[in-house]
């Protein structure tokens, strides 16, 4: 999952300190794997260097965690692009897709459209595999079936999430 893009998405609703970003990230997306502080500040340094965030203010008391970061216009464009591009279909995508859906809801972008785009991308690959399977020998069929079952599992998750978007929107906007 792209921590940088997730930070940008979280910063879109307003400037935050590094510590605050880490806490929100861990609560929403970290599950049992919280971010290390080193990761937080190296990510912010990279975003700063690339002009995607800027320092909005420094509170007295010093220390890197006292800097408050704000997203730039280039940062908004970058997160927009990330959210609108489907992920390459592969197993265990859920955490990235979940993050994208939550960020789309938080930033009032089309979460349903994001899921539609992803469904199309998954089906595109499933069609390719189905064609390969239809013209292939038994080995091809079994290999393709394995991939198809995994992609199907992703799609079931997509459908379930699409059906629960209103509920999820209420939760994340609390």
């Amino acid at each position: 999952m792209s921590i940088g893009h997730t930070f940008l998405g979280l910063l879109e609703s307003g400037p935050r300190h590094g510590y605050d970003l880490k806490r929100t990230f861990d609560e929403r997306f970290g599950h049992d794997r919280p971010l290390a502080y080193g990761q937080v500040y190296s990510t912010l340094a990279r975003l700063l260097k690339n002009g995607l965030v800027e320092v909005d203010g420094i509170e007295p008391g010093g220390g890197p965690e006292r800097k408050r970061y704000a997203i730039t216009d280039a940062g908004i464009t970058d997160v927009e692009r990330w959210l609108s591009q489907p992920e390459k279909p592969e197993p265990y995508l859920q955490s990235t897709l979940y993050t994208k859906v939550v960020l789309a809801l938080l930033t009032n972008r089309g979460a349903a459209e994001l899921l539609d785009t992803q469904r199309s991308e998954h089906l595109r690959l499933m069609r390719e595999l189905t064609r390969r399977k239809t013209g292939g020998d038994l080995a091809d069929q079994l290999v393709c079936d394995h991939a198809l079952f995994h992609l199907e599992a992703d799609l079931r998750w997509l459908e379930l999430t699409a059906a629960r978007l209103d509920q999820l929107a209420k939760e994340v906007r609390k």
């Binding site: 199309s120 499933m126 189905t130």
Partner: peptide, 17 residues
């Protein structure tokens, strides 16, 4: 169809929601 594996035999999909 509601099954992705069946839909994979199509040329394209239209989603109804």
């Amino acid at each position: 169809t509601h099954e992705a594996r069946v839909a994979a035999y199509s040329d394209r999909e239209v989603v109804v929601r």
